[in-house]
């Protein structure tokens, strides 16, 4: 029997009918057609399905959808600003080649996003720790780390600029 649950996705509130055993990734991809988050394993191992729930990164493929009731979900589709400009992390992944095939990228960027929120100036080890659950077969992680470092610099540079103006 389907149940109706309500939550917010990228700032929009949604109501969806779900079967109780469904996971969040299925609802995002199949019901809401937010296909940015990917299924790389469906078993909580690869991180391709990473989205934020109330700001914390989760493997949405094993996140029971009923638990999302009333919460805020952020996906890769929610990172660009309203004028369609890329988020600095997205931009950094292009500028520093943190993306190759791109399959791990949405999950990788969401993990980086959560990291930089909590820790605007992470060390390399902290970055590697934050993305340890996000597998990438293409890049060998080096340029992903560089992308996150670059994003951190850009983002903190901008906030300094703002701070200076205030």
């Amino acid at each position: 029997m389907k149940l109706t649950i309500g939550f917010s996705v990228n700032g929009d509130s949604v109501e969806v009918e779900v079967l109780p055993h469904w996971n969040l990734l299925k609802v995002l991809r199949d019901v809401l057609e937010l296909t940015g988050a990917k299924q790389g394993c469906g078993e909580g191992e690869c991180g391709a399905c990473t989205v934020l729930v109330n700001g914390a990164p989760v493997n949405s493929c094993i996140y029971p959808v009923l638990e999302v009731e009333g919460k805020e979900v952020t996906t890769i589709e929610g990172l660009m600003d309203k004028s369609g400009r890329l988020h600095p992390i997205q931009q950094a992944f292009l500028e520093k080649a943190g993306v190759q095939c791109g399959f791990c990228t949405p999950g990788m960027i969401m993990s980086a996003f959560a990291l930089l929120k909590a820790n605007p100036d992470p060390t390399e080890d902290e970055i590697r720790h934050a993305i340890a659950g996000n597998m990438c077969r293409c890049t060998g992680y080096v340029q992903i780390v560089e992308s996150v470092q670059h994003a951190a610099a850009v983002m903190s540079g901008r906030s300094q600029e703002r701070a200076g103006k205030e």
């Binding site: 296909t35 890329l86 997205q90 292009l94 500028e95 949405p106």
Partner: peptide
């Protein structure tokens, strides 16, 4: 820089999508 911005926005459609 890499030219494939679709991949960082979730807009790139793979066979899964």
């Amino acid at each position: 820089p890499r030219a494939d911005a679709e991949k960082v926005t979730g807009k790139a459609a793979y066979i899964n999508d």
